[in-house]
Amino acid sequence: MLDDIDRRLLRQFQADPGQPIGALAEAARVPLATAYKRLEKLQNTGVLRGQHAVIDWHALGYGVDVSLRITLDKTNPRAFDDFLAAARDVSEVIEIQTFLGRVDARLRVIARDLSEYQQIYRDRILTLPHIADIEALLQVATIKNSASLPI
């Protein structure tokens, strides 16, 4: 189980994942050797699974960011598997989530502009298998985005 030292380290690490381990140890008020040991243990136990670079798609000219909420045809037992496998092949799909609730899945799709989006939507999204219904939500602004857990 996690103790207070682990929590302090993870809290500081989440707040600034790019910082060197020395700064992290200092911010968490933990000796450097302890910080090394604890982070290694968190990795070995699978709590800390990895670190990923975050891409700003806007900087690369992708100005359109759409959430598609999808209801699947659940009469087909393979609906989820087929749909997810096909959605993974669409490179403009940058996030895939599945839910228990009113919708079954959500795809986050990016495009350079609305005409490119329309083309992706028609040629790549509507052709995905077992879709019963799609709703599109256009993201206007992000007010808070802390991937952080309240550890």
């Binding site: 996690l2 993870l10 690490f13 989440q14 994942p17 790019g18 136990t45 699978g46 709590v47 800390l48 699974r49 990895g50 670190q51 990923h52 670079a53 975050v54 891409i55 700003d56 900087a59 690369l60 989530q97 839910f99 959500r106 991937a147 857990l149 309240p150 550890i151």
Partner: peptide, 24 residues
Amino acid sequence: EAGVIAGRRLDLDAAKLGFGVTVF
């Protein structure tokens, strides 16, 4: 510097940290 790499994200196992539920 061009802002294409906007930062890093930690991939933490939320369930192992005691957060078993995420709701939208």
